[in-house]
Every structure is written in structure tokens, then in C-alpha cells.
Design a protein around this nucleic acid. Structure first.
Length: 601
DNA sequence: GCGATCAGCT
DNA sequence: CACAGCTGATCGC
């Protein structure tokens, strides 16, 4: 749950995801997505008065969030104040103080966040630096490198602060199975069950208002059916979702809810069939977050939790590993947590986030040639040499550090804070479906952040407290220990998927109840919502939604890598090229021999 | 009567 | 495996 108070220190005249208290005086509002914990005060009477007395204040959000927000009558008063912004379209905004007339210019860009329909991150660029507010997000490893608007001139933008979704920024939540793995597991579980008979139905015990839609659409596609939900109104302009959900109860897949859902399902009845004695076999699936430690061998993605009941892994938020990847890539000057992870403290999460930051302000650090490490600077695909570096000087070698590094570890220079930071070019960090060879190179590329992390931790010894040193040591061990993969050995989530239909789904027959015709009667009080949809068509962009249907041409592509939790079609970094197999083979030979990698072939 | 806040629950 | 959100009790205006 977000505990972000609404304002960023760089731009205190705007408020994000919070609409009460001090935020009542904001010159502009931003809504990252339509979950209630990001809408505090959004329908408050004080805010309504403020809006009525202002001619300039607006609410900026994605077009999908606008639809979702306005689908509730309580929020209709916002309609004239909402400015929907397309994703990845930088927009200049004037923040005007209506009393004094003073104005501040700001450029905002919405980036896909992968949390729920319409969810976005906000990148602000203005006089006080570039600041990224992530809202809630689930991005896979490497996604950040493919976001064009976080780069400029082929380099990562200089980010002053990131206000980050730290829900799972705790090593306990080190890895969470990818979105694709989880959905595939649920699809298989559902398929095994509903194939048994027309009376075998599935109930998805979903909690949040939005976020499960890509699961519904995937199930709808797989089984050529629709998922029964309570209300369609909010999706009326979203045909990609709408065509896979229904208010008609006569379907085998349900995500309907009822105040006493749990007890009805225990009685082998669906929430929508409460009070009837339908002779159904209901399989209950509760999507819930499952996580695995750094060295944990991930177990099942679905777990049997009772008679005809399963929990299935599902996460709206990035894992520790994914958040760390995100921040290590951006290297902001500061990071602030939006959430205190369960069982942690604000101080603890803040301390851990600091380790992903640049260690010194860009203006304060005089560049030190990195000696032994500097040669890696010439590995053009991975790093860019600082402009003032002398490539032939062997002064100021990090001898001690070099000795501490494993001999065969691929080495790279640390980014000079003033140096341009290269966006990945040929790094398969950006390749969603890498071959084994490409994957290996990707691991090399990943080692850049791993080693930077090592360097950062090592260098922090002289200016950080001893407690932090201990943590740094632990992190060094962790990151070096898992070399070969961004998160240890690449987990093959597919291998851990062990829904054994024979063992798990058989042999739990319960006494059947008399079938009730109620299920085939009028489907719902709101069933005619189905008719409301024809005259709208709000297109969901591919980069905005993971449930976007894939082209037929993509059907034969290999499955995404194990940690690619996001299914977004984020554009590749401009000008990137894939290395040829020959180039890769040469590179691996050199790596294996510990050779200098910088010499061109 | 309404809103804010919190505990309890799922 | 812990997210997101509903319900009900309590308090203040």
C-alpha cells in the first residue's frame, strides 16, 4: 500500500496520487493508476471547492485511467479537469500560481508501469532536474533499458531522484515468477478442470479492482470463452478487455465477487449463484504473491490449499531483483520509497535503496582512472569512456580491489558521474527472446551493474558507517555469488510448474448438490451493460497493456525468458544491433581465456 | 449526516 | 506468503 504523501521535494507545486492535506494547494495533479490507495482524498469536499475556485488546476493521467476514474459517478466532477496524456509523448505543462501569476515550466512523460490497466510512471523534466515517480509498477529485468524516454542521445538520462514502488524491495522478496509463467500455470490449471465436464467451473478469487484483466483476457483467448465479472461499465471503451469478460453467469470461468464469497465457494457454489444449490464442481483459485529468496529453488507456482482450492502466484509489483535492476540501471542521485515493505521499516528500506544510488554528486567527484578496470571502458557495447580518461595511463590502479575480484570475472569501468552513460547498444539486455549465446552476452552486460555495485559497496567503506559496510559486504557476496545471472542461476520457472492434474485434481469428489436452474436464468442485474459498449472504442496501446493480443507472426517465437515479468512491447533502444553468432563465439572464447575484450577483431 | 481513521477480515 | 479494499465502529464537525 502506498504511503507516498503526494509531493516530491524537487517539484513541490505538483501532487501525485494524493489529494488531501497539503496537496489541496497543488498547481497540478497526477494520477498514476486507479487503485484506492493512490486516490486518497480524490473525492473530498475540500478538493471539490478548490477545483471550483480555480481556472487552471488539472489532473493528468493516462487515457485508460481517465476512463476508469470516470466510470464511478462519485468521480464525475473531475471530468472537466482531467487532461489525458498519451504514453511516451513528452508534454510541456505550465504550473501557474493563480495568486501571483508566477509560472514554472515542466515537461512530463508517461511511461508504462505494468501494474494494472492504465498504470503509468511519470518522468518530470524541469529546472530542478529529472525526476521519476514510478507509482506502482511491475517491470521485468531489462525493461528499463528499452524505455526510450529514459534515454537521450543514446545515453541514460541524468536522473536526480526516483520515487519508487518499494513494495517488495526487501531481499526476502528476491524473485517472483514472471507474469507469463504465472498466467501459463493458471491457464493449465483452469484448462485441466473445465475440460472435465460442463459442470466443472473455476472461481478466481480476485481482490483488487483492477490488475487481473490480462489474466481474464488470456483465459478468454485460451478457452474461447468469457470470464464472469460483476461489472463491465469501467471497460466500456476498452474492447481488448471487454471481449473477454461478461456479466452472463453461464460460463465456466468466474471472477465474480460477493461479500461472503469464501463461504459460498466452500459450499461448492459460486458467488453469483449464492442462495442456489447448483450442482457444480467449483475449483477455487486465489491469485496471490509468492516470492523466493536469492538462493531458493523456486517451488510450485500454484499450490494446493484445500479441497478443490489452489493459490496461484500473481504479482502486481516488481520483485527486489527487478527493482534493483531498475534502479541500478538509472543510477539516480537519490531514491525515495513509496512503500515500506511488510515487516521492514522506512529507515531500512531507505538505507537499502541508497545502495542503488550514485555514490557522490556528479559535481563533487574528481575522476580517478580505474586502472585494471579501465580497459573495459573500451568495450563499446557495454560502456562509454569518460571524456577525460586517459586510456593509456596505469596510474591509480585499484590494486586491492582487483585482487579481491574473481579472476575470470568480466570487468568493466564504473561510470564516471560526469561521463555520458551509454544506453545499451548491442547488449541483449534489450533482447526479449535471447538465444543461449545472446543470453550469455546479456549476462556479461548484466555484470556491468553487478560490478558497479561491487565498486560502489567497496568504495563506500571510507565514508559510510560500519553497519552499512556489513550490508555492503553482504551485497557484494550476493551479487558476485550470483554471477552468471542477474538473480543467481536463471530460474526456469517452467520447470517448477508442477500442476499435476492427476494428483491434484483427481480424487476429491464431493457430494453433488441438486442443479439449480437459476444459473441459466437472467444473468445479472447489470447484464445489459453488454449493450453499452458498441459506440466506444478506446484503443489500448501495446506498451500500455500486457494483455495486448499478440500478432500471429509472433506465435512461434520462443517463450520469454524466465524473469521477464513484463509482456510489454517496449521498443528496442534505437540503433541497437544484435551481435552475430560469430562475434559472440569470439567474445566467449576471450571471456573464457580472461583476455582483453576491448581489442577489435 | 458526513468524513476521517482504524481494526478486522479476506 | 502479506495486495487491495470492504465493512463496521468510533470520533469529530
Amino acid at each position: 500500500m502506498s504511503s507516498f504523501a503526494g509531493r516530491m521535494k524537487e517539484y513541490p507545486n505538483i501532487s501525485l496520487d494524493c489529494f488531501d492535506r497539503d496537496n489541496l494547494h497543488a498547481r497540478a495533479y497526477f494520477l498514476s493508476h486507479c487503485h484506492k490507495d493512490h486516490m486518497r482524498g480524490i473525492k473530498g469536499p475540500k478538493l471539490k471547492r478548490r477545483l471550483r475556485s480555480s481556472s487552471r488546476v488539472k489532473l493528468y493521467c493516462s487515457p485508460v485511467s481517465k476512463e476508469l476514474l470516470l466510470s464511478s459517478r462519485k468521480h464525475l466532477f473531475w471530468e472537466q479537469y482531467i487532461v489525458p496524456l498519451e504514453l511516451e509523448s513528452p508534454t510541456q505543462i505550465s504550473l501557474v500560481d493563480e495568486a501571483s501569476g508566477e509560472s514554472e515550466e515542466l515537461v512530463v512523460t508517461l511511461l508504462p508501469a505494468g501494474h494494472c490497466p492504465g498504470s503509468v510512471m511519470f518522468l518530470f523534466e524541469g529546472r530542478r532536474g529529472n525526476v521519476l515517480y514510478t507509482g506502482d509498477f511491475r517491470l521485468a529485468l531489462g525493461d528499463v533499458a528499452r524505455m526510450e524516454h529514459l534515454h537521450s542521445g543514446g545515453r541514460v538520462k541524468d536522473i536526480q531522484s526516483v520515487y519508487v514502488d518499494s513494495t517488495f524491495f526487501d531481499p526476502r522478496f528476491y524473485q517472483i515468477p514472471s507474469r507469463e509463467t504465472c498466467v501459463s500455470a493458471i491457464v493449465r490449471l483452469v484448462g485441466d478442470w473445465i475440460a472435465r465436464s460442463a459442470l466443472h467451473v473455476v472461481w478466481l478469487n480476485c481482490k483488487a479492482a483492477y490488475g487481473y484483466e490480462y489474466l481474464f483476457t488470456r483465459l478468454g483467448q485460451e478457452f474461447n470463452t468469457r470470464v464472469h465479472v460483476d461489472n463491465l461499465l469501467m471497460f466500456r471503451r476498452m474492447p481488448e478487455i471487454l471481449s473477454y469478460v461478461t456479466c452472463e453467469r453461464r460460463t465456466q470461468i468466474h471472477a465474480c465477487r460477493h461479500r461472503k464469497s469464501q463461504q459460498y465457494v466452500h459450499g461448492n457454489r459460486l458467488p453469483c449463484a449464492c442462495g442456489t444449490g447448483a450442482d457444480l464442481r467449483v475449483l477455487s483459485i486465489k491469485p496471490s504473491t509468492m516470492w523466493f529468496g536469492e538462493r531458493t529453488h523456486a517451488s510450485d507456482v500454484v499450490i494446493k490449499s484445500g479441497n478443490d482450492a489452489f493459490r496461484a502466484c500473481f504479482s502486481f509489483h516488481s520483485s527486489y531483483c527487478e527493482v534493483k535492476d531498475f534502479l541500478s540501471y538509472l543510477q539516480p542521485v537519490q531514491v525515495f520509497p513509496n512503500v515500506v515493505p511488510m515487516g521492514s521499516t522506512l529507515a531500512e528500506v531507505t538505507r537499502m535503496l541508497r545502495m542503488t544510488c550514485r555514490k557522490r554528486p556528479r559535481d563533487d567527484l574528481a575522476y580517478k582512472p580505474l586502472g585494471l578496470l579501465k580497459r573495459r571502458r573500451r568495450l563499446a557495447t557495454l560502456t562509454t569512456a569518460p571524456p577525460d580518461a586517459d586510456p593509456d595511463s596505469d596510474d591509480d590502479l585499484f590494486d586491492g580491489l582487483a585482487a579481491a575480484l574473481p579472476k575470470k570475472l568480466p570487468r568493466t569501468s564504473r561510470h564516471h558521474p560526469d561521463a555520458p552513460r551509454a544506453a545499451p547498444q548491442a547488449t541483449p539486455h534489450t533482447a526479449p527472446h535471447a538465444t543461449p549465446e545472446e543470453n550469455s552476452l546479456w549476462l556479461v552486460a548484466r555484470d556491468r551493474s553487478d560490478i558497479n555495485n561491487f565498486m560502489d559497496c567497496t568504495e563506500s567503506n571510507d565514508d559510510d558507517d560500519s553497519e552499512e559496510d556489513e550490508q555492503s559486504d553482504r551485497d557484494q557476496t550476493k551479487w558476485l555469488g550470483q554471477r552468471g545471472s542477474p538473480c543467481g542461476e536463471p530460474p526456469k520457472w517452467e520447470d517448477f510448474f508442477t500442476v499435476d492434474s492427476q494428483n491434484n485434481l483427481n480424487g476429491q469428489r464431493q457430494a453433488r448438490r441438486p442443479f439449480s436452474p437459476a444459473l441459466s436464468g437472467p444473468s445479472s442485474e447489470r447484464e445489459d451493460d453488454d449493450d453499452d459498449v458498441a459506440d466506444f472504442s478506446l484503443s489500448l496501446s501495446a506498451s500500455d497493456h500486457s494483455w495486448q493480443k499478440r500478432d500471429a507472426s509472433e506465435a512461434d517465437e520462443p517463450p520469454p525468458s524466465s524473469q521477464s515479468s513484463s509482456d510489454f512491447d517496449v521498443a528496442c533502444t534505437p540503433d541497437s544491433k544484435r551481435p552475430t553468432p560469430e562475434q559472440l563465439a569470439r567474445l566467449y572464447r576471450k571471456l573464457a581465456d580472461g583476455d582483453d575484450l576491448s581489442c577489435p577483431d
